[in-house]
Every structure is written in C-alpha cells, then in structure tokens.
C-alpha cells in the first residue's frame, strides 16, 4: 500500500480537476495542467519517510523531473531523484524504483509535454 500524503503545491488549478484527485487511487479523477510548461506539483508525506519506489499514471507528460526533500517544515532543499523522458501513450504508467531515500516532500516538475496539456491521474509512494 502507498503512504498517505497531501498535495501541497500546484502550478495549475481547475476546480473541476482538483489535485486531490491524484491521491484517491480510483483512477477516475485527475489533475490537469491548464496550459504552458513547465508545471509543478509538490506532495507532502505525513512525516519524513523512507521511500523505496513510486508509481505515476499520467497523460501527455514528456520531460519529468522528480525531486525529494527531507526538510521538516517548508518544502526546501530539494535533491534530484530522477529525470526522464516518458514515451507518449494513452495513459502513461511510470514506475520509479530503487529511490531509497528519506523524504518529507516530493516535487514533480513536468518540464515538457507531448501535447499542449498534460494530466496526472494517480500517484502512489511506496516502501516496497
């Protein structure tokens, strides 16, 4: 099972597609960018946690950079976990394993897209 977290920062906001949609695991709802790149989303775990892997479902995301921060209070001092290019697809599934770091905040930068708009449907952060 995934760790609980809150989405604490987003660079786009449409009330019909709120960022809370990415945490509910049902896959029905999603968060969407509302135009231009880069776009950014920060999640905050309940406490600093040893993160082993994560799984992300998205549409149209191309350049993706994931960073982590162990800073207890503010989301500061991020270090890069991975940066990758996600191939186009209908619903994109991205798994990042072997992260093995202690983090409180995770930052997802959508650096570019396959189309003008991109979405994130689900995000699970795991210790396995």
């Amino acid at each position: 099972m995934g760790f609980e977290y809150d989405v604490t920062m987003v660079s786009s906001y449409d009330t019909l597609y709120p960022c809370e949609n990415i945490t509910n695991g049902s896959g029905a709802g999603f968060w969407t960018t509302t135009g231009t790149y880069p776009q950014c989303l920060v999640i905050t775990l309940k406490e600093t946690t040893h993160v082993k892997s994560l799984e992300l479902f998205s549409c149209n995301v191309k350049g993706l950079r994931i960073e982590g921060s162990a800073s207890e209070s503010e989301a500061l001092n991020f270090e890069e976990i991975t940066q990758q290019e996600i191939p186009p697809g209908n619903l994109q599934k991205t798994t990042v394993s072997d992260i093995n770091g202690d983090f409180k905040h995770l930052k997802f930068d959508i650096l570019s897209g396959h189309e003008h708009f991109a979405s994130i449907h689900d995000l699970t952060v795991m210790n396995g």
């Binding site: 999603f30 969407t32 549409c59 619903l91 599934k93 189309e115 979405s119």
Partner: peptide, 10 residues
C-alpha cells in the same frame, strides 16, 4: 483534451 484524459486507459 480534458475529455480525452477522462477516457484515458493503459
């Protein structure tokens, strides 16, 4: 696009 996102499947 958001319409297509809501129909997206693996």
């Amino acid at each position: 696009k958001v319409e297509s996102f809501s129909n997206a499947q693996l």
